[in-house]
Design a protein around this nucleic acid. Structure first.
Lengths: 185, 185
DNA sequence: GTCTATATTCCGATAGAC
DNA sequence: GTCTATCGGAATATAGAC
């Protein structure tokens, strides 16, 4: 992996571990055994790095969506939920939740790019639920987009809240989502 | 209101507006027209202030719970949800969500106090749902505590996520929670 | 591409006058 | 209780050598 890629990866982890306002370029350079100034060579400003991290997530979500497009809705939903299980195992939170929490401290460009990511995820989950409902796999009466919001909020917040109420709560929430969707009304 | 109370109120707002790592004592003193050092007179350290803010919330939630204890479950749930509607109108996020996001940057004492608040809220909502179910007002098959977690995560995350997907999404999520709970299975 | 060195700014916190 | 003044530290960022 190139230094630039490693900086991206570590930056991503730090944002989701401590938040955008609690990590520094020195944190990154320290983990790589290089100096502060070298990080600035690859990303001129902190904002540029954050923007690149968001773009990295947009690419990953897009790939995950496309790779599973032909699978059945339950499998696709599991694929979506699994990404949060990874986050939980790392004792971190998701990028959207981290940056949305700090939204009033970031510039317009980052805000816009993050909105792009959030819309992408919402669109994807809405599509999964829509397909699942029309094929009779999922059952719900709420408007599909709103149901997708409920699924996403449950995952986004459970990685945060289960830090306090107990890590096993993440699993309970995760399983109840599938349970409720697949139970006949 | 005393200076100390005003510092508490402004500190509370700043934590929920920008996060614990993006506000300073100077932000607070500036809003009060006093100096940095004066804030330190009332709260020796930033940690002491944060701790007091959490305690303030514990008191408020306790009071809200007790004040509505005799009301019917639907009313009580509305009371709970209304607190997030206030937060949303301020364009802020809830204290638990803000501090849970930054949890890896705070000390053990704050962590423990925040856990106390989270448990209090979870206990309250679980009780509301339990009463509602036994009196036939609410309908759900998921374990009561887990359902409470789903309600709380929906509110906690919707104030964050609707900053990106659209503020009206908060209302949609809020109403669908009541809708789903009161719909016969 | 990475380094040293540094400019600048801000933060948390404290000492001591009033 | 609030002030001025200040210390020590850390952060973002840049200039210029290698």
């Amino acid at each position: 992996m190139t230094t630039k890629e490693q900086i991206l990866r570590i930056g991503d982890e730090l944002i989701r571990d401590k938040g955008i306002n609690a990590f520094s370029f020195t944190d990154i350079s320290g983990k790589l055994g290089i100096k502060n100034a070298s990080v600035h060579y690859h990303f001129a400003t902190k904002d540029a790095l954050v923007l690149a991290v968001i773009n990295r997530h947009i690419e990953k979500v897009t790939q995950l969506r496309e790779r599973n497009a032909a699978k059945d809705p339950t499998f696709q939903l599991q694929a979506f939920i699994s990404t949060y299980a990874v986050v939980k195992k790392e004792n971190k939170i998701c990028l959207v939740g981290s940056l949305a929490s700090d939204l009033n401290t970031v510039n317009k460009t980052i805000r816009k790019k993050l909105t792009e990511l959030a819309d992408l995820i919402l669109d994807w989950v809405t599509e999964i639920l829509e397909t699942g409902k029309s094929t009779g796999v999922f059952h719900f009466n709420t408007k599909t987009r709103t149901k997708a919001l409920l699924v996403i909020t449950a995952m986004l917040a459970s990685v945060q809240l289960s830090r306090l109420t107990g890590d096993t709560d993440f699993k309970r929430i995760k399983e109840s989502i599938i349970q409720e969707l697949t139970t006949t009304l």
